[in-house]
Amino acid sequence: MTVTEGLARLQAQFAAAVLGEDGAGFARHLAGDAGAGLRRLAIYRNAILANRRRALRAAFPVVARLVGDGFFDEAALRYGEACPPGGADLNRYGATFAAFLAAYPHAAAMPWLADVARLEWAWHESLAAADAPGMDFAALSRVPEGEQPGLRLLLHPSVRLVRSAWPVLSIWEANQPDRDGTPDREDGADDVLVWREAQRVLLARLAPPEAAFVDAVARGLALEEAAGITDAWDFTPMLQRLALHGMLCGFSTGDRVPA
């Protein structure tokens, strides 16, 4: 047995003893008073679960407020069992929490919950997304008219679009610290644009053609194709809005993917 095989076995048994149901089998690896050693393994269990819980609470404060502490902590525990962190950076832990909630039987009575989680994760990702230089509008203005339909725009790395059949933005807004939790709408769909501007993450509700247009741009479609998706709708105001709020950071013409 190589050193890493022996160490791997010991560490796997430690993890099983700390996170599993029964740690007693690990006693033979411990020095000193076995009873005290096994009780102290619980210190690790509590710390590991608390760290995971804290990371999820930080990323999903609205979900936590909607479901309450007991529900959230239990969901965090089950999520950790199903999808333990695959990296040491807990700020990246929770990418699949929305999908977990969508399938979580105890959340079945709250069908909007998973989409609220998706919106919170988009917010969380937007905050930490890469910085990017602004759009070179001078260069953009030099694109000959004939090539404009083929323009492909590059969105800022912080831009996200969250589309939901539920009024997730209303729910999100109602559950900010200064609000009492009552949403101004209880049904209807929300398409939410998420972006970072002046180091703050901002959210805005989009009309259906606006969302379809942003989605098309995000997928790298040329303006002509994006316009086709949104039919006769004039995309110019939406384009200006993206530009004004720093959501565009590059473009390409022809078939090149924007960079």
């Binding site: 050193v3 796997a12 430690f14 990371a55």
Partner: peptide, 25 residues
């Protein structure tokens, strides 16, 4: 210390056995 095994991260500073083999590792 160690904090991950088998690709799972335990997000805690876990103790090592202090042996010659582990020292070399």
């Amino acid at each position: 210390c160690w904090s991950s095994i088998g690709g799972e991260h335990l997000s805690e500073l876990l103790p090592l056995p202090y042996s010659e083999e582990v020292l070399a590792h």
